[in-house]
Design a protein around this nucleic acid. Structure first.
Length: 427
RNA sequence: GGACGGGUGGCAGAGUGGUCGAAUGCACCGGUCUUGAAAACCGGCGUGCCGCAAGGUACCGGGGGUUCGAAUCCCUCCCCGUCCGCCA
């Protein structure tokens, strides 16, 4: 959420930002309602004050008659207050709906426009390979080497679920180790998080549990939801907390399973492991002071590059355009890995994303920091970035590693955990 | 899952219907004393919102209720502890 005072003082700017980001929010209407609500708030407080004065005088009343008369007066004042309050609540509810729909502000360098306007910032170290043989996609490779059981997954949980098998199962664990080791070395606190979270936490991060549009699986009869990312649990971990400023920036990385209904998504682009209902993800999360978040954002992106360079996977980094940004993000960098088997002759496919959410999530989740010796508290900045989303990384590894003899070379960095250099072949 | 006991400021902990945003201690900040430090003493010290300010208002785990008035009484949910049951 944005700072309300900022919206009131910069309503045109906020309206333009909403438009750029493809959000229909009537900022002028919000300002009108907010001003009305504030006026009513003052009236309510004045009536409360009067009623409080009356209440306090009752204890000191000299006789029963006076007490009764004061009680009547108090009752009358509280009734007036309640009426004003009801009016205020009604207006505040309408204002709140608009307020909650407003996306975060946007970094000045972010390209304005839709997906086509996204800007490529850089490329990874590894070059896109030229294959001297017919390229297979990861589904075919997995079938050849018995790595993924899609039919079994469908039988027990439905389309979009799968069993990782043989080297693929070992690859998942290897990728977890690989990412966690690197991040721990960078000073991140490693965590394994709950896979379920309360609705309130999901909403604070910016997800909408339940309802017709939801991407979230929910537990029946309980306020629990399967998480779509560890961003939810890691960000939620500090909800309602006040952090000492000296402790910032705070860097944590967490492994969770991620569950997504992916309603409406289908087709060749989501074949195989690309768009699934469950996968494992290692996520980076950071809490920072406001003036640290931009550097942290670049740092998280650098780490993602380091991770994929270390796997010898070609990729490009994209500065996501305004129309493609989610509500909480101030700026978002995506890593798109080269997937040789994707599309007609290979395509880039999103494997990670790093977002700077500035104080947008912190305001919703009430995550603040306090500077020693200074009065009051301020909202921290939050950032999140994918370290490794296993299923997508798996696609890139299998497809980029395939050889003319049908074997698949395992990236050197993972070999010690998988226990071999290649999958299949004569070696 | 069942029974009981709890949830109060950074921490500990008093407060069971009004004079309570809340005693006291510790921690923290400023000062006196001291060559310096410690100790001692003096003063300050929660958060949000409205307001230039004075001040007002709200907040004692969350939500709702009773009452002129709720940290205090009632309902409900969440969490923590102890015991019992079950169990990787």
């Amino acid at each position: 959420m944005l700072d309300k005072r900022f919206i009131l003082e910069n309503s045109e700017l906020v309206q333009v930002n909403c438009t750029n980001r493809g959000v229909k929010a009537d900022v002028a209407r919000f300002v009108e309602l907010e001003n009305q609500s504030r006026q009513l708030q003052q009236d309510v407080e004045e009536l409360s004050r009067q009623a409080n004065v009356v209440s306090k005088s009752i204890g000191k009343a000299k006789d029963e008659a006076e007490r009764e008369q004061r009680k009547d007066e108090g009752r009358r004042l509280r009734e007036q207050k309640d009426a004003q309050q009801a009016e205020m609540d009604r207006i505040a509810a309408e204002a709140g709906a608009i307020y909650r729909s407003m996306p975060n502000l946007t970094h000045g360098d972010v390209p304005v426009g839709d997906e086509a306007c996204c800007v490529e910032l850089r490329r990874g170290k590894s070059q896109v390979r030229k294959f001297g043989f017919p390229v297979l996609d990861h589904v075919e490779l997995a079938q050849q080497h018995d790595l993924v059981d899609f039919e079994g997954g469908a039988r027990i949980a439905g389309n979009g679920f799968y069993f990782l098998k043989n080297e693929a199962a070992l690859l998942e664990l290897a990728l977890q180790q690989y990412a966690m080791q690197l991040l721990v070395g960078e000073g991140f606190t490693p965590m394994i998080t709950p896979d379920l979270a309360r609705g309130e936490i999901l909403q604070g991060i910016g997800f909408i549990p339940r309802g017709p549009e939801t991407q979230i699986y929910s537990i029946e009869n309980q306020d629990l939801n399967l998480v779509a990312t560890a961003e939810i649990t890691l960000g939620g971990l500090y909800s309602g907390q006040v952090i000492d400023a000296e402790q910032l920036p705070l860097k944590i990385c967490g492994i969770s399973h991620c569950f997504r209904t992916e309603a409406g998504a289908a087709g060749r682009a989501s074949r195989g492991l690309y768009r699934v209902h469950q996968f494992t993800k290692i996520e980076m999360f950071a809490f920072t002071l406001p003036d640290q978040s931009e550097d942290m954002h670049n740092y998280l992106c650098d780490l993602e590059c380091q991770l994929f360079d270390g796997l010898d996977i070609p990729y490009r980094v994209i500065d996501t355009a305004t129309g493609d940004l989610g509500g909480p993000a101030y700026r978002k960098f995506d890593l798109e890995a080269w997937m040789p088997g994707r599309g007609k002759s290979g395509e880039f496919g999103e494997v990670t994303s790093a977002s700077n959410c500035t104080d947008y999530q912190a305001r919703r989740l009430n995550i603040r920091y306090k500077v020693k010796g200074e009065k009051g508290t301020k909202f921290a900045h939050t950032l999140n970035g994918t370290a490794i989303a296993i299923s997508r990384a798996m696609i890139a590894i299998l497809e980029n590693g395939q050889q003319a003899d049908g074997s698949i070379v395992i990236p050197e960095a993972l070999q010690k955990w998988v226990g071999k250099e290649r999958i299949g072949g004569t070696a």
